[in-house]
Design a binder for these strands. Structure first.
Lengths: 155, 155
DNA sequence: CATCGATAGTTGATACGTCAACCAGTTCTC
DNA sequence: GAGAACTGGTTGACGTATCAACTATCGATG
């Protein structure tokens, strides 16, 4: 209803553009790299990390969804694809007829053990090495503020 | 070949995790929002912005690709989809038989004019409002450093 | 002018994310 | 104990990103 929208100041625009550009380049490069030399996507990686960090290497699908903050259908699709590639397996859930446990397979453990050092090395080389520890701290603080702000807002 | 990979320090991990989490939440929320209330994706948006900023509202596909820093096949697919929805049109290129001009249509202009204020408002509400101007400046500086670092590295 | 390499752009396969609709069990409530 | 509402999870359609292979044209060089 506002005929004259409030545009951003040029300083605000600069900040937004720089951030977006950085984030696209960084994430794009990292995910292509990890994909290329371990055959795993960022999604595969995080799912296996979360599963293998859990005692027993298995978890309910919805618990996994909450942990990684994805919606259930995204998790369901991801798990199906990973099941087809043998990285995880679905197991029956005795106490809840609807439920499914997702478990990392041997191949899954192997894959994450191989991929983790590679992943870390890329993160270090592409991101950590670009910044001082003070800058990293500032970025963490800023990121946390944005997240807190988002969580305070509806939707 | 390094049997004992150098993991990140806990401070470095915190920074990386915070950043990734922020970036995912922010981008996800913004793109869902913009999609929901203007029917346009971030990709549609940026393509139309770049096209309509150009005098004549038309541009060679490869020039567009360089401008938005996408690979050509991504641009090609995106343009095809936008053509199907009537937002842009392809025009012949007289001086280069291979070439294609991409032009914003009337519907494209209309769409971007409608979407821009909405987009800006979301950026402001989700991101700008979360931070002080000093924080925005710091983030811009940090982002630029990371980009410069990435551009210094091969691939 | 023949050809060879670079450039412009398309296409198809595959993977990923979102949305909405759906099914099946579970829990609440009267 | 019979619904009704809720929760856990799947599915299909669609839009999107990447990669590799391909076509067609351009431009340089012989």
């Amino acid at each position: 209803m506002d005929a004259t929208p409030r545009w951003l100041t040029s300083e605000q625009q600069v900040a937004w553009n720089s951030f977006i550009r950085m984030q696209e380049k960084l994430i794009g490069r990292l995910s292509r790299r990890v994909q290329a030399d371990s055959g795993m996507s960022a999604a595969d990686y995080i799912v296996l990390v979360k599963l293998t960090e859990t005692s027993g290497g298995r978890m309910r699908l919805m618990d996994l969804a909450k942990l990684v903050e994805w919606e259930k259908s995204r998790v369901s699709h991801q798990v199906r694809r990973m099941t087809e590639r043998g990285l995880v397996a679905k197991e029956e859930c005795p106490d809840d007829g609807r439920g499914a446990f997702i478990a990392a397979t041997h191949a899954g453990y192997k894959a994450i053990e191989d991929a983790a050092p590679v992943h870390v090395e890329h993160v270090r080389r592409l991101f950590i090495d670009a910044l001082s520890q003070e800058e990293l701290n500032m970025l963490a603080r800023i990121s946390d503020r944005v997240v807190a702000h988002l969580e305070r807002q509806p939707d």
